[in-house]
Amino acid sequence: MEIKIFGPGCKNCVNLANNAKKAVEETGVEAEIIKVEDMKEIAQAGIMSTPAIAVDDEVKIKGRVATVEEIKKLIS
């Protein structure tokens, strides 16, 4: 599984990446977390408000920091 975190590197994006890491650890799912910081790529993915999280190239939650629980639901 591939989890993408979209955001130019502001504090919220870091928080989201940490939540994702925690969710992966707690569920034990095999997943790779990739940070996307390039504006072009972020816009191309149809994201207008950061941070955002995508699972297997499908944008799931954007514009807010998803909680560990929410991410767990997305990946399991």
């Binding site: 955001g7 590197g9 919220n12 504006m39 972020i42 816009a43 994201i47 207008m48 408000s49 950061t50």
Partner: peptide
């Protein structure tokens, strides 16, 4: 927030 201005 200012970091969203470009995607917007």
């Amino acid at each position: 927030c200012s970091c969203s201005s470009v995607p917007i």
